[in-house]
């Protein structure tokens, strides 16, 4: 076994173990934090596949963004953190359903894996960095998708600001000056 294989199995072990913890843990906070290791292991895989940008994006977006969001959601939802996740009387039936769905998905995936035509061209030159290529294709080939996504995010941002500022918009002209003069950080002369 060479070094790469060792690292691969290490990451695989981390992903599988922490993934199992996410599913099986009775404590929802433990599950949320175990997700972190899963996401990290995935980032490790991306890095092994020489897509460094994707790996770092994985950490940035999933670990730094979405996971924090999940944890905040869990923590701010009242009385959820102390509660143990339990299955009710129909739990056994749920187990059956879950097992069935898992088996179906597993079969489907392995079918796909064996039947799809993988491009197995050996890489003749290891690219210095994937970031240049990603940048070019984002701003040439996929410019429309990129812009639409940007506009979508902008809309979401404005919406969030609107929700947060609801009362102030109603009772004032929402001139930024007025709001800032009310604020205490202004140095009183």
């Amino acid at each position: 076994m060479n070094l790469e294989a060792v690292i691969f199995y290490l990451f695989a072990l981390i992903i599988v173990a922490s993934g199992g913890l996410v599913v099986l843990s009775k404590n929802i906070m433990h599950a949320a934090f175990a997700l972190m290791f899963t996401l990290f292991g995935l980032a490790g895989f991306y890095a092994m596949l020489l897509s460094d940008f994707l790996a770092v994006s994985q950490i940035m977006i999933y670990v730094g963004g979405i996971l924090v969001l999940i944890i905040f959601g869990v923590m701010l939802t009242s009385k959820i953190t102390g509660v143990e996740l339990k299955t009710g009387p129909i739990g056994k039936v749920n187990y059956l359903f879950g097992a069935a769905i898992s088996v179906i998905i597993a079969c489907g995936l392995s079918l796909l894996f064996t039947n799809s035509k993988w491009i197995e061209k050996p890489v003749d030159k290891i690219p210095d960095s994937s970031i240049n290529a990603i940048g070019y294709s984002l701003l040439t080939e996929y410019i429309l998708v990129f812009e639409v996504a940007a506009v979508l995010l902008l809309i979401a941002l404005i919406g969030a600001a609107l929700i947060a500022h609801k009362d102030q918009i109603i009772d004032s002209d929402a001139s930024s000056n007025e709001i800032s003069t009310n604020n205490d950080i202004k140095i009183k002369e």
Binding site: S57, I59, G64, V68, I131
Partner: peptide, 25 residues
């Protein structure tokens, strides 16, 4: 010598956030 070092630093510093929430909670 990561060629996206700056991006990596921004990303990895979010680990501290998780650690802090973890410890605090």
């Amino acid at each position: 010598g990561l060629n996206i070092g700056l991006f990596f630093i921004i990303a990895i510093s979010s680990l501290a956030v998780l650690g802090i929430v973890m410890g605090g909670w």
